[in-house]
Simulated scan of single mutants.
Amino acid sequence: MADAKTITISDVMTKSVISVDAKLTVNETAKMMEDAKVGAVIVMEDNLPIGIVTDRDFAIKIAAHAYQISTPIKKIMSTPLFSINPDETVRTAADLMHDRGIRKLPVIDDGKVIGIITSTDIVNLLAVCVEEDMRDMYFHSVAKIYTNYSPYN
């Protein structure tokens, strides 16, 4: 296995990503997600990615606001769309996901969605790491937490 600090997003991302037009309804989108067996779709408008809808958005936003199934998907999408470049490291993705409180991160290259990396992908990677990589990631996380809460910063 390569050094965990240098594994790139393109090494671990899922390359097949479903995207939907912003005008699609929540019902049509949910059916697409079910058929494709995915937990997220990228919302597009004028061929540009503008948001993401996850299974969590369905569970929380639709239920909490009692939206009709005919509601445009754009109304429940999460925006702004945070994304990452395929050449970035997995550690960078993990930091961004932690900082933003997100579990799914689209991978965008030259304005095109080319993949997605999820918290599950990162956990699966951790499961096969060597002890040295685990120790390094642990100390990186502790240092980050300390920096966030240190009275000296």
Results as ranks from 00 to 15, higher is better:
Thr118Ser: 13
Gly115Phe: 01
Met32Gly: 05
Val41Ala: 05
Ser83Gln: 08
Val123Trp: 05
Ala93Ile: 02
Ala22His: 11
Gly51Cys: 04
Pro72Val: 03
Asp87Met: 01
Leu126His: 06
His98Met: 15
Leu81Val: 02
Thr120Asn: 11
Pro72Phe: 00
Ala127Met: 07
Asn148Ala: 11
Lys15Val: 08
Lys31Ala: 11
Ser141Leu: 07
Asp11Thr: 00
Thr6Gln: 06
Phe82Lys: 13
Ile108Trp: 01
Val26Ile: 15
Pro86Ile: 03
Leu126Lys: 00
Ser83Trp: 08
Tyr138Cys: 11
Val90Asp: 08
Thr25Arg: 01
Pro49Ala: 08
His65Phe: 12
Val123Thr: 14
Lys104His: 15
Asp11Ala: 02
Thr29Gln: 01
Ile62Ala: 03
Val128Leu: 07
Lys23Arg: 12
Ile116Asp: 11
Gly39Ile: 05
Asp133Asn: 04
Cys129Glu: 07
Leu105Asn: 01
Ser16Gly: 10
Ile9Leu: 05
Met32Cys: 08
Lys74His: 09
Leu81Ile: 10
Glu88Met: 04
Ile108Arg: 01
Asp21Glu: 06
Ala93Tyr: 00
Lys37Thr: 08
Ala64Glu: 11
Leu125Glu: 08
Tyr149Trp: 14
His98Gly: 14
Lys23Tyr: 09
Val130Met: 11
Ile18Asn: 10
Gly39Tyr: 05
His98Asp: 14
Asp21Leu: 00
Glu28Leu: 03
Met44Cys: 09
Asp35His: 07
Val107Cys: 00
Glu131Gly: 07
Asp3Phe: 01
Ala66His: 14
Lys74Cys: 11
Ala30Met: 01
Phe58Pro: 02
His65Cys: 05
Leu105Gly: 02
Ala22Asn: 10
Ala36Asp: 12
Ile60Lys: 01
Ser70Lys: 06
Tyr138Asp: 09
Leu48Asn: 15
Ala127Glu: 12
Thr29Asn: 02
Ile62Gln: 02
